[in-house]
Every structure is written in structure tokens, then in C-alpha cells.
């Protein structure tokens, strides 16, 4: 009871604080304005966008970047249901198109990164995987994303282009679930993005394969139509698409658009 009350109090306090911050925002000087910019970004952008947000706040004193990471289609649902986003960065063009179709995109989306698939195996590589074709060998437990999600759509494209059909033991709903099955040693191999392998560090071993080029995912970014702070939203997009953004994204394994 006491804990709940304290929690409620904390919520109220933070809500009031957030409100007063928002109230302070208009009227600040500077060419790009100040205040809060809320960025909805695909889960795979977590590391890079967190870094870029810090850079943005440092370069624009008085501004605050609020980040919300989730699967791209979840984010589209949230924004169409009225969530207060200023910027949307999607992991594929399909979900950006969904948002444009709902007339919720201001101007044209800009492509800012690409991502390709990579094979992730447990560090010891128990099934001795060295190529995409190895994944189709009998007895190999391979886990992929379901075709309904972007990484699964990319997997399907690679299968079609290479003529190799995989028989996965599981089709997961997210890259994180695929990685989880690999890091826990349940699966012999999983198909995830290059950037995910990099983020996972030495918990998995990455194996690149030439066929992945057939299915590069493009990441578009755009200002949301209902944004209350379009100036700042555009400034953030400039940072992401500019040289500084390029460097951070490149370091994380993203390709140039």
C-alpha cells in the first residue's frame, strides 16, 4: 500500500515536472529552437540513436530528446493511435509507407541507413556453419524471423534469390528472440542483422554470406505530421542523415543508403 502510494506520488511528480518542462520550452532562442523532441525509432537503432540523442542535446543546449524504441510496426500502430511522436525512424520502407498512407508523414521520408543479414552462431559453432547453404543441411537447428516482420521478409528474399530453402525450427517475432535462442545454445544458427551481431559482442559469432546483399533493408526517417516541434524534429533528422550520424551508424555496422 505504502509502496503504491509512493509510486503514485513519484508518477505525479514526474508528470508535473514533464509538464513544466514542456511549458518552459517555447520562446527559447537559437536557430533550431529548444524544447523536447520525441523520437520513435526501430528497436535495432537503440544503441546508435541513444548516442546520437546525447550528441544532439550537447549541440543544442536546452533541448531534450525522448526516445521510444520498439518494433517498427508497433511504433506505426502507436503513432496512428495518437502517440505524440515528432520523428519516426523505421527499420523498413514498408512501415514508413503505412504511416504515409495514414497521412501522418510531413514531407518525404529520407533513407539514412541500410542493414543486411548475417548468420549468428554460438561462439563454439557446434554445427560448423560457414555458409548460407550450410543452414539447410539436415540436423542443423536454424532459427529465423517470421516473414511478417522485416528481418523475416529479408530472410525470405535471400532464400528466393539463392534458391536455398531453409527448414527453420522456429520463426520468431523479433530479432531479439532469434538472438536469444542462439546465445542460449538452443539453436545452432540464427539469421539476424549485421548490426545485431555486433551489438551481441562475443556472445555470438557472426558469419557473413554473399547472398545477404540480395536483401538489404533500407531505414527511412521522417517528421511526423502532428509534431508540435517540427523545427527541432528536422534538426534531429539532419543530424542522423548528416556526417556525424553516418559515422555513428557506420561504426555500428549499418551501411550507407
Amino acid at each position: 500500500m505504502r509502496i503504491t502510494r509512493r509510486k503514485t506520488a513519484a508518477l505525479v511528480v514526474s508528470a508535473v515536472l514533464a509538464g513544466s518542462l514542456a511549458a518552459c520550452s517555447p520562446g527559447g532562442g537559437g536557430s533550431t529552437g529548444s524544447g523536447t523532441v520525441t523520437v520513435y525509432a526501430a528497436a535495432s537503432l537503440k544503441k546508435t540513436f541513444t548516442e546520437l540523442a546525447a550528441k544532439f542535446e550537447a549541440a543544442h543546449p536546452g533541448t531534450k530528446v525522448t526516445l521510444n524504441f520498439a518494433g517498427s510496426s508497433d511504433l506505426v500502430t502507436q503513432i496512428t493511435q495518437g502517440a505524440p511522436a515528432d520523428v519516426f525512424a523505421s527499420a523498413d520502407s514498408k512501415n514508413m509507407t503505412k504511416l504515409s498512407d495514414a497521412s501522418l508523414v510531413d514531407g518525404d521520408p529520407v533513407d539514412f541507413a541500410t542493414n543486411v543479414l548475417e548468420i549468428a552462431v554460438p561462439p563454439a559453432n557446434p554445427a560448423s556453419i560457414s555458409s548460407f547453404a550450410d543452414l539447410a543441411k539436415p540436423g542443423v537447428k536454424v532459427v529465423v524471423c517470421a516473414p511478417q516482420v522485416p528481418c523475416g521478409a529479408a530472410t525470405e528474399k535471400v532464400e528466393k534469390a539463392s534458391g536455398i530453402t531453409l527448414k527453420p525450427v522456429s520463426e520468431e517475432s523479433s530479432v531479439a528472440d532469434v538472438l536469444g535462442k542462439v546465445t542460449s545454445g538452443e539453436a545452432d544458427a540464427g539469421l539476424v542483422y549485421v548490426t545485431d551481431v555486433k551489438t551481441a559482442g562475443d556472445k555470438v559469432k557472426g558469419i557473413t554470406f554473399p547472398e545477404s546483399g540480395q536483401a538489404a533493408n533500407t531505414y527511412p526517417i521522417a517528421t511526423v505530421e502532428n509534431s508540435k516541434n517540427k523545427e527541432l524534429a528536422k534538426a534531429f533528422i539532419e543530424l542522423v542523415t548528416g556526417s556525424e550520424g553516418r559515422k555513428v551508424l557506420g561504426d555500428a555496422g549499418f551501411g550507407a543508403p
Binding site: 517470421a146 522456429s170 520463426e171 520468431e172 517475432s173
Partner: peptide, 16 residues
């Protein structure tokens, strides 16, 4: 989702 995975007809139950 965490333990069994998700494959049609094998492990993908209605909630999944």
C-alpha cells in the same frame, strides 16, 4: 515464446 519458439503447427499456439 522464450522457451519453445514459434513454428506453425509445432509450437505456435493461438496467443503466439
Amino acid at each position: 515464446l522464450t522457451f519453445a519458439g514459434s513454428l506453425q503447427g509445432v509450437t505456435r499456439t493461438l496467443p503466439l
